[in-house]
Design a protein around this nucleic acid. Structure first.
Length: 283
DNA sequence: AAGGCGGGGAA
DNA sequence: TTCCCAGCCTT
């Protein structure tokens, strides 16, 4: 049944991108995985270089302040990832002798590390045999094997079992990187480049005539008023980092929404001190 | 199982 | 405008 592994591996050997975290330390791998959660490679590249220069190991980052870290995170998005990575750095420094854990179950306990990230770090930093299922890999298999345009919203037990059975014995980490790369560069979400695909002749989705997915797309982002209110606060603080809470309340008709927005923002990108709010990226 | 969380670039 | 991105965490 599984005869397409050699094609994928040799395609990867010839076509893989030269990504800096592929020849970095385990900590470098970990930083990249956090930055890459829901963020495209192209936007992560410069920021990763900057962080590795500034904080080469976990203990270096552990010494930084949240304000410095959020500032350095800049506009990568989902700033809570930066704070969770900071927490990871402290745990690694204090409990793991400044070494990123190799064990998947141990990694999984760290803040901000879910099933994917734990498997990815173990595989890419330590060449462990883990089941790596990111959106690229899931989409590739969904099409090639299941004949479905898109995978379900999250991996089921059945999916995990089927994909696990495909992992080669001694080169699991290469298999993970190769399938991920194929999904990212060829078997893309929109306009896949099937003419460049090394396994197109055995692709079930292609054989079936590329049926459109009937599955409901994953959560549509909706910019509700809560979100707009937060955006207003952030913009105001970018211009003037020392606005007080009272001044902010004049920016929005509904005072309670401002309070709600601040409650959300205070957990990651704002700091409060003596009734004045500081927007960390400009601190 | 569903919904929230950022931001920028491509379609 | 909508869609997409090497997900995670809390109801």
């Amino acid at each position: 049944m599984i005869s397409f592994q050699p094609e994928v591996i040799s395609w990867f050997a010839k076509n893989q991108r030269d990504l800096p975290w592929r020849k970095s330390t385990p900590w470098g791998v970990m930083v990249s995985e956090f930055m890459l959660q829901q963020t495209p490679v192209s936007r992560v590249l410069p920021k990763w270089e900057e962080w590795m220069q500034r904080w080469p190991t976990a203990s270096d980052l552990a010494k930084a302040t949240p304000a410095e870290i959020i500032t350095a995170w800049g506009r990568l998005g989902y700033p809570r990832r930066a704070l969770r990575l900071h927490e990871c750095a402290k745990v690694i420094t204090n409990e793991f002798d400044n070494q990123v854990p190799r064990n998947e179950e141990l990694l999984r306990q760290l803040p901000g590390v879910g099933d994917y990230t734990a498997a990815a770090i173990a595989a890419f930093a330590y060449q462990e045999r883990t089941l790596v299922l990111d959106i690229n890999i899931r989409r590739l298999f969904s099409r090639a094997i299941d004949g479905e345009e898109f995978p379900s919203s999250s991996p089921s037990k059945v999916e995990r079992g089927l994909r696990d059975a495909l992992i080669p014995e001694n080169t699991a980490h290469i298999w993970a990187a190769a399938t991920m790369e194929l999904g990212a560069l060829v078997c893309t979400s929109r306009n896949p480049a099937c003419e460049k695909c090394p396994i197109s002749t055995s692709c079930r989705w292609r054989a079936n005539g590329y049926p459109k997915s009937t599955l409901k797309r994953t959560t549509q982002k909706w910019h509700g008023t809560d979100r707009q209110c937060r955006g207003t606060v952030i913009q105001a603080l970018r211009d003037n980092p020392s606005l007080s809470v009272d001044q902010l309340k004049n920016l929005w008709p509904d005072e309670s929404q401002i309070e709600k927005a601040l409650q959300t923002l205070l957990s990651d990108k704002l700091l409060a001190c003596d009734g004045v709010l500081y927007f960390l990226p400009s601190a």
